[in-house]
Design a protein around this nucleic acid. Structure first.
Lengths: 139, 139
DNA sequence: TTATATATGTGTAACTTACACATATGGGGG
DNA sequence: CCCCCATATGTGTAAGTTACACATATATAA
């Protein structure tokens, strides 16, 4: 997905136009933060566990890096919270630009899912014609 | 997804156990070849266009590399076809091990899709609660 | 004192991706 | 004969991603 125009979808958001995207960490973090309202990296990483893909948990360092990048792009804002006991927290909130960015992500994810769904359907269809007959023969 | 055990799903196939996978080129190529019966790289690349993900066509060089790797793993077999006019073709067929591999891929893809679907649903739900009220206000 | 949970990061080897480029066969047009 | 194009098979690689190792600091409990 990196580097450049792999396709031209006009002016609609596309997975190849979303810039440096650490795969799906970005939308997951954005969604979690939007859901939580105000939160910090450690808490987001924990909340995101349930949304992480491929059975692997979210990479915690990746969460911090994504938060930094989101802030550089104006999608979130942060302030230090030193009022509580324990180590200081960097608390984040989503900006309206961040919500728009998340909205673009839903388009990208929707298209991506539709394509992958097609691939999976084709794989299953092929297997049904080629694997099942032999299976029913041998068993 | 590379390098090692990011999770433990017991003995079920998992996206982090599928070895060096050039993302989804492998299942796409395998499925196309299984569908076509006997085919060569160039033809597979063309047939796979309709199944490729993220609106980008399949990378043709990647198809050849994947076919080589599939053959090294015993998932396909090849012979040269010099009988026709034009450049020689390397013709491939899927082995029974290849069909089993494709079957494992459907499990991986199914899980992957389910997880991503959850992410997308969460994104949409969050946006519905946070984006729509403002939108209906302003418009 | 040591261990653990919380909290925020840096560094990087291994791997993936998109694309540039190389090579060769044969057919058609000039 | 030469050039261009479609077919056909590859190699090389810069830029980007991923998983994990490691560093640091605060507070609480054993």
């Amino acid at each position: 997905m990196p580097r450049g125009k792999c396709c031209n979808r006009g002016n609609r958001p596309c997975s190849c136009e979303m810039g440096n995207l650490y795969r799906f960490t970005e939308p997951i973090v954005l969604a979690c933060l939007a859901r939580l309202g105000i939160s910090h990296g450690y808490q987001i990483a924990q909340a995101a566990e349930s949304l992480a893909v491929t059975h692997a948990g979210l990479d915690v360092p990746a969460v911090y890096r994504v938060l930094r990048r989101l802030e550089n792009n104006g999608y979130v804002q942060s302030t230090w919270d030193t009022s509580r006991s324990g180590p200081a927290r960097r608390e984040y909130v989503v900006t309206s630009a961040g919500l728009e960015h998340l909205d673009e992500w839903t388009v990208v994810l929707g298209d991506y899912l539709a394509s992958l769904n097609g691939v999976l359907a084709e794989c299953r269809q092929v297997l049904q014609g080629r694997l099942c007959p032999e299976e029913t023969e041998n068993r």
